[in-house]
Design a protein around this nucleic acid. Structure first.
Lengths: 243, 243
DNA sequence: TAGTGGTCTAGACCACGCA
DNA sequence: GCGTGGTCTAGACCACTAG
């Protein structure tokens, strides 16, 4: 029953692979995040293949996190600009020392939430105490590099909530509170990214993330001031530690 | 044409999911690494489903690295004892300080190879100079924890090649060469595991690994003595850094 | 209810590894 | 050449979402 329109078999490569590549190119060139792909039936007709074959092709785009299927709705484009090929050649080294003190970060979330679990414990607060929760995104050479979740006792830092918008958080604290911070603890681990982090970091969901949890205390009093969780793109970051 | 033997649909869950679970249980209980699964045709007949359905089930076991398909041969069991559920609750914290100095490591590879690239550069050797390449596996509470690749100048450490078998490499160096080592540099990154590492660490191939490259020099002379690359299971290890 | 993705069946042929 | 996995087609029905 094989009709195989013109030259599918030409390359000797699987049809679904070729379709996947065409779709990927189209998505990168013509789609914005959030847009819907044509339905599987439409794609099947357009490429002159069975619906199962386009399904297989679409599956190849799900792995790297390019699209996502939503049952009953359709296939939605996640992030056409994911850069697969940063590679270790262009890996940026981050000195643990300077981490969090950089200037090129942008705030994309700022809320007051109740402290729970590890956050409360590390900031030495009662469970449920209000903390200021700030999330910043940092880019390096135009590429997303890391996301930092900052937690600070809300009572003490109301001014941060109202006025900190970008730049270095530690710089802001120093300026407005005459605070000098000292890092007391860093915990480093390798994990897979949360969905939202993968999107913001423009990375695949099955690619690794380097996560650093760190606690900063007031140099003068020793009191905990900030707890931060940083997620670096695994393919872009490398931490350097020197004793 | 649906025959659906007895109660497949009972759970409301997909047939291929249920078959995948049954296969997984069987593999863990009755298979050794390297054994072949029955052919897809056999499995299809046994479960009373179409071959495509068992294929789908087997695909679910490929992702986590439980089995591997070999075109023309069959489906081979990789490592039935992979532990999916170590979770962060039982994450072990490794102090960067003690890393490599632990006692519970076992040598599984020991060769002399020519130094190239980063190895030669960091050990301050000419490209092509012979280096001793040792790989050790360390376990924590009976579970594989990390793999370390050690590189040492071969000319200086012939005795290591002949006599070091287990325990602490740094201890061995101290005993036999009266050497005391100092870590000068550590580079930490998050990556996906190499195939062999995944097998030895009994982990899924799509789960992250925490990789630490470190250089140790002779405390007395400052001469580079050992370059090491450590790969930790991401779900089991957490590095702790204290200034 | 119409349209979308999700699952399953049935059958065909291809590509690879091995004896 | 046989047996294995790899791909593709064809058609059916289910489950979910939204108007």
């Amino acid at each position: 029953m094989t009709r195989s329109v013109v030259g599918w078999r030409a390359g000797g490569r699987a049809v679904y692979t070729q379709i996947a590549e065409m779709l990927e190119r189209e998505i990168r060139e013509r789609y914005e995040p959030g847009q819907m792909l044509p339905s599987e039936a439409e794609l099947a007709e357009r490429f002159g293949v069975n619906r199962h074959t386009v399904r297989r092709a679409v599956e190849a785009l799900i792995g790297p996190g390019l699209v996502e299927r939503v049952h009953g709705k359709g296939t939605v484009v996640l992030n056409p600009a994911i850069d697969y090929a940063i590679g270790s050649a262009t890996r940026f080294t981050e000195t643990l020392h300077s981490q969090g003190r950089s200037t090129a970060s942008r705030v994309f979330r700022k809320l007051v939430i109740p402290a729970v679990g590890g956050v409360a414990r590390r900031l030495n607060l009662e469970d449920g105490t209000a903390v200021l929760f700030i999330e910043t995104l940092r880019e390096v050479e135009g590429q997303p590099f890391c996301i930092i979740s900052h937690f600070l006792p809300a009572s003490r830092f109301s001014e941060v909530k109202d006025h900190y918008e970008q730049g270095s958080l530690h710089g802001f604290l120093k300026e407005h509170y005459a605070l000098s911070l000292r890092r007391t603890e860093s915990l480093i681990s390798a994990v897979l990214p949360e969905r939202d982090d993968a999107l913001r970091l423009r990375m695949a969901r099955n690619a690794p993330v380097l996560r650093v949890k760190s606690l900063n205390v007031d140099t003068a009093t020793g009191e905990p001031v900030e707890y931060a969780v940083t997620r670096f793109r695994g393919d872009a970051a490398q931490l350097s530690i020197r004793p």
